[in-house]
Simulated assay, not measured.
Amino acid sequence: MDDFEEIRSLLMEPAKEYGEGRTSSREFAIELKRRTKEAAIRLVNFMERTGKSPALSVVRYQLLKSGTSVAANYRAACRARSKKEWYAKMCIVVEECDETVFWLEVLMESEIRVNETEVRVLGKEYQTLLQIFAKARATAKV
C-alpha cells in the first residue's frame, strides 16, 4: 500500500460514506477540504449553543480559532505553489488540529457544562483528521 492509499484508508470510515474507488489525489483533497470545512461549521454551531461562563469564553475563543484554522490552512495547503510551501502549511494544519483536540479534551475534563455527546463527536472527528494530516506530513518527501 503506498502512502496515499494508507492515508486514504484512514478517511474511509465507513467506505460507503465517502464512496468507493476514489484513487486520485485531487478527489482526496476535495473530500478533505469538504470534511474540514464541515467540522469547522459543526464546531462553530456547537459553540454558539453553549453557555456564557468566563471559563467557557476562553475555551470557546481558543477552540474557534484552532478548529476553523484547520480548514483554512488545509485549503491554503491545497493551493501551495511548491512542496515546501505545502509542507509548511501542513505543519500548521497538524498543529492547529492537535490544539483543537486539546481544547475539546479540556471541555470534557473540566466542570464546564456542555453537551458531552457533541464534544465526543467533534473530538473523534478532529482526532481522525489529526491522524490523516500527521501521516500525510510525515510521509511527505520535501
Rank of each mutant, 00 (worst) to 15 (best):
S24A: 12
S25L: 15
S25N: 11
S25H: 08
S25W: 08
R26A: 15
E27R: 15
E27V: 15
F28H: 13
A29I: 14
A29S: 15
K33S: 10
R35P: 00
T36I: 04
K37D: 10
A40H: 05
A40R: 09
A40Y: 02
I41N: 02
R42A: 05
V44H: 01
V44R: 01
F46V: 04
F46R: 03
M47G: 02
M47I: 05
E48C: 03
E48L: 06
E48R: 10
R49M: 10
T50S: 04
K52F: 03
S53V: 07
P54G: 06
A55R: 12
A55W: 05
A55H: 09
A55N: 10
L56P: 00
L56D: 00
S57Y: 00
S57P: 00
V59W: 03
V59Q: 05
V59T: 08
V59S: 02
V59C: 05
Y61T: 14
L63T: 06
L64H: 02
L64A: 08
K65E: 12
S66H: 09
S66T: 07
G67F: 05
T68H: 07
S69E: 11
V70K: 04
A71N: 14
A71F: 01
Y74L: 14
R75N: 09
A76M: 11
A76R: 14
A76N: 14
A77R: 04
A80N: 04
S82A: 02
S82R: 05
K83F: 01
E85S: 09
E85G: 05
E85P: 07
W86T: 12
Y87H: 10
A88G: 12
A88K: 11
A88H: 12
A88L: 10
A88D: 14
M90R: 07
C91R: 11
C91A: 04
V93T: 04
V93S: 03
V94P: 08
E95P: 02
E96A: 03
E96R: 08
C97V: 04
D98E: 03
D98W: 00
E99L: 00
T100H: 06
V101E: 01
V101Q: 01
F102S: 11
W103E: 02
L104V: 14
L104C: 13
L104D: 12
L104R: 12
E105T: 15
E105K: 15
L107A: 15
L107E: 14
E109S: 15
E109Y: 11
E109V: 13
S110R: 13
E111F: 08
I112K: 09
R113P: 05
N115C: 03
E116I: 04
T117D: 13
V119K: 02
V119D: 08
R120P: 04
R120Y: 07
R120I: 09
V121D: 06
V121A: 13
V121I: 10
V121M: 02
L122A: 06
L122F: 02
K124S: 04
E125Y: 00
E125I: 13
Y126S: 12
Y126G: 05
Y126Q: 10
Q127D: 09
Q127K: 14
L129E: 06
Q131E: 12
Q131R: 08
